[in-house]
Design a protein around this nucleic acid. Sequence first.
DNA 1: ATCATGTTATACTACAAATATAACAGTTAA
DNA 2: TTAACTGTTATATTTGTAGTATAACATGAT
Lengths: 130, 130
Amino acid sequence: MFIELDFQSETPIYEQLKTEIIVGIASGQLTPGERLPSVRQMASDIGINLHTVNKAYTQLKEEGYLLIHRQRGVVVNPEGPEAMTKERQAQLRQILRPLIADSLCRQMTEKELTTFIQSIYDELKEDRSK
Amino acid sequence: MFIELDFQSETPIYEQLKTEIIVGIASGQLTPGERLPSVRQMASDIGINLHTVNKAYTQLKEEGYLLIHRQRGVVVNPEGPEAMTKERQAQLRQILRPLIADSLCRQMTEKELTTFIQSIYDELKEDRSK
DNA sequence: ATCATGTTATACTACAAATATAACAGTTAA
DNA sequence: TTAACTGTTATATTTGTAGTATAACATGAT
């Protein structure tokens, strides 16, 4: 598993780490039941503090992405997170609204936008067959 | 112009204010050349500090959304921001990737996603005819 | 002149991110 | 049993950003 972080970025490291793992799961690079490095191992691999890793792991556990057994360590949850709810959809709408508004102001058409979304979607599912 | 802010939200006030204005422009509720309240007026209207408003205005000016004349005050730029570039598109991809990955993990299909995007798009353009 | 405009400077509080140590409890393997 | 490794918790510190509070300046309008 390749974790690529941008330490110059303004987005927090633990957020970036969460994103990397979620994308890894979505793309199939991380398989259900697969074990992740321990908080200390991952921390030393990336060169960050163990608490930062722990924060990412803990939140991903709360969101249903990971399972944390005392014995087996950190594992990708075969069940996965709960299906998209209406509340979460409304929340997603709040995030997407300004992004789409900005794209609209920059003369991006609806077609360009949907094909753009589609390309990201395909890029994620592409790795699933590998 | 109705500015609705959520002071309980974790997203900064100036970010929310920027979003409100961009959405306002995209939806046509704010027309090209239209004047916005002064930093002090807007601040007292919403009940926040003038520097917070100034931060939002200044950044929107740098992004090409607003013009700031010494005489006429703050005005919606008729030219609008620059058209979508490849750099900005790559940046947008970085933002959307984790969101789509999450939606994918929650068993949202590509069709559901595009229709969802479309509904937000339509919602914005809807107000344009009013 | 007076007032309102954007602009700048300074200082302060509050909070989150990230790191640094340290310790605890339980599991695993030598 | 001992040693090493898990996740977990606690505490403290540093750093940067958000937001507020005053204050002042230069410019343009009435």
